[in-house]
Write a protein that binds this DNA or RNA. Structure first.
Lengths: 104, 104
DNA sequence: TATTCATATGAAAAGTTGTTCATGTGTTTC
DNA sequence: GAAACACATGAACAACTTTTCATATGAATA
C-alpha cells in the first residue's frame, strides 16, 4: 500500500513547520525576551532574573520552564539557587535580527 | 521636574521590547511561516499562495494583512490580482536561524 | 451594466496563552 | 529536625488568536 502523500512546502513538512512556529512563540512574549536578553550577560539565578526584569518569581519560573522545554536555555543547581544560561547560539542572532528590523 | 525613570533592560526600553515581541509573533504561527516561506520564491498573488499552502482564501487574507502591518511583506495590485512579496531582508535570516535550531 | 473573478473584512466560536494565587519541593543553616 | 531561603507547580481567570462563515469591495470582461 503506497504511503499517504504528506503535505510539504518546499521540503518542509507540516511537523517541521509546527516546530518552527513553536520555537518562534518563545520569542513572541516580552517577558521571555527580557529573560533571554538578560541572560546575554551569562549565567544567572532566578532571583537575579526577577530583579533585573522586575517580574515576580512565579511568572518568571513558568517562563523559564517554557524556555527550557524549547531548549533555548539550560539550568544547573548551585546550592539553594538554580543557575540558568543560554543553550543555543542562534538565540542572540535571532534577537539581533529582530532588533535590526524594528530599528528601521 | 525630573523625567519619570523608565524601565530599561540594558538599553532596550519597554516599548522596544514589546515591539520585538510583536515582530516575533508574526513567526509564531505555522500559517504565517508557510506564507513567508512560500514568498521566498518571489512575488505571488493570493490565489497562488492559497494553493501552495493549502489554506482557504479568507484565512490567508487575514494573515497577509497581519504580515503587511508588521512590514514583513508588501503588496501591489496587478489587474484583478494583488501581488505580495517579502519586504524585509531579515525574514529569511530569521527563519533560517529557526530551521538550524530545530534541526539540531 | 450585469456578471464573474480576485481579494478584503467583520463577527462569532473555539482554542491558546500569561499571570496570579496558593502551595509544594528541595537545600542550607541554626 | 525546624526554620528559612530559593525555586517549581497546578488551577483558575482574563485576554488574546486563529479560523470559519457570510458578505462586501474592486477590477475585468462579456
Amino acid at each position: 500500500m503506497p504511503k499517504q502523500k504528506e503535505y510539504t512546502l518546499k521540503g518542509l513538512s507540516e511537523r517541521e513547520l509546527l516546530e518552527l512556529a513553536d520555537l518562534f512563540k518563545m520569542f513572541a512574549d516580552s517577558t521571555r525576551i527580557k529573560i533571554l536578553y538578560d541572560l546575554f550577560d551569562g549565567e544567572k539565578n532566578v532571583t537575579e532574573i526577577c530583579e533585573d526584569i522586575e517580574m515576580n518569581q512565579s511568572a518568571v519560573s513558568h517562563q523559564l520552564r517554557a524556555l527550557k522545554t524549547a531548549k533555548l536555555i539550560k539550568s544547573r543547581r548551585d546550592g539553594k539557587s538554580v543557575m540558568y544560561s543560554l543553550d543555543d547560539d542562534h538565540v542572540k542572532t535571532i534577537i539581533e535580527m529582530g532588533k535590526e528590523h524594528i530599528e528601521e
